[in-house]
Write a protein that binds this DNA or RNA. Structure first.
Lengths: 187, 187
DNA sequence: ATGATTTATTGACTTTGGTCAACGACTTTT
DNA sequence: AAAAGTCGTTGACCAAAGTCAATAAATCAT
């Protein structure tokens, strides 16, 4: 999992001993398109690194799916809340393509935290980073109109629009598909 | 600062050596009502523990203040984003009463992280906790109506309604004061 | 290729929150 | 006590997103 080690380097460099212990905790899993790697009601006891493929993170509100996040190659995927709190997940995580992920489970990660100060630090830096991401998404919901969110999204990740159907983008932006269609029609 | 040590105990118990080093980094500061402890454009290089008093965390959008958070006795107060990224704050932090806070700055905290694995862990647990708080606030903006947010707020923190003027509650809920007044008028 | 299903667009109408203005109840200042 | 300012409420109107329905376009299965 060299790509994961490179990803970690953005936060902190692990030495070979730390990295080997980490790598030994990873389990490679092949996932087929539309497979659910987490269901509502289950405890999410893993964090997974996406080697190949993509996922959507959504919950079902009266039969309508509300998409909270998309995760792509090179991202982590997990219900971090359920992972941290031990509470059942309110979200599903479903593959949008065939995928390959590397999972690490809660118990093993906690052992690594105990054993290596640098991995403990990595955990802190990643938690801080996740905080920043969700805080900026909160800002976009508090202070931007749906149109502004849409424009910011295509600015930031135009690839998303090609890869994901529009009704999912709408859900992610917090509007109905009809509304997104009308937003796109403006200008 | 025994109350802070007790607060930390929810996350992890520090031994006396760890705690003493921590306590030595704290600076007590007296704040008067309406004093700003952080301004837009400044780098927030501190995290403060509120011993007495309360603060609001807001930013100024074209002369209108948008309140992102309230912080009370027993909470931390900081622009955590600015603190973590080193970027200038887009928010103000202003006292709503006379207050007493204990500040720790970025450099000192990083030294403590280096020196004590348990404090590094405390930093992780606090970052994880902040993640959970902002994630749940994001959910409330994505999936609830203003009325539902208002009801959840009075459910969770009815004290807030007594202590804070209604137009600030409205701002925190993401609506205009007139709208909050009408929401309250329903039923 | 054909038919079936899914996805995107458009129109008419409704709902909800925003805007602007007026007003009354309190506070604060002088 | 009077004047000025602040805060919350109410009314009339507006703008934006939701709802429901019809239809067009794209995709999938056979």
């Amino acid at each position: 999992m060299e790509t994961l080690r490179i990803y970690f380097n953005k936060f902190i460099k692990l030495n070979d001993s730390e990295w080997n212990d980490f790598e030994n905790c990873l389990t490679k899993v092949n996932i087929t398109n539309k497979e659910q790697i987490l269901r509502q009601g289950e405890h999410c006891n893993f964090i997974a690194f996406i080697h190949e493929g993509s996922f959507r993170f959504y919950y079902d509100k009266d039969g309508v799916e509300k998409i909270t996040a998309f995760n792509f190659k090179g991202d982590f995927v997990s219900n971090y809340r359920s992972f941290l709190t031990g509470k059942p997940s309110d979200h599903f995580i479903e593959a949008m393509q065939d995928a390959v992920i590397y999972k690490i489970n809660l118990q093993e990660l906690n052992s690594l935290y105990d054993k290596h100060k640098n991995i403990e630090r990595l955990g802190r830096l990643i938690a801080e980073n996740l905080y920043l991401m969700v805080a900026s998404r909160l800002d976009s919901f508090m202070f931007q109109t749906p149109e502004e969110r849409y424009k910011a999204l295509i600015e930031r990740n135009s690839r998303l629009l090609q890869e994901v159907p529009q009704y999912m983008i709408a859900s992610y932006l917090g509007v109905k598909p009809e509304t997104l269609s009308r937003i796109r029609g403006r200008k």
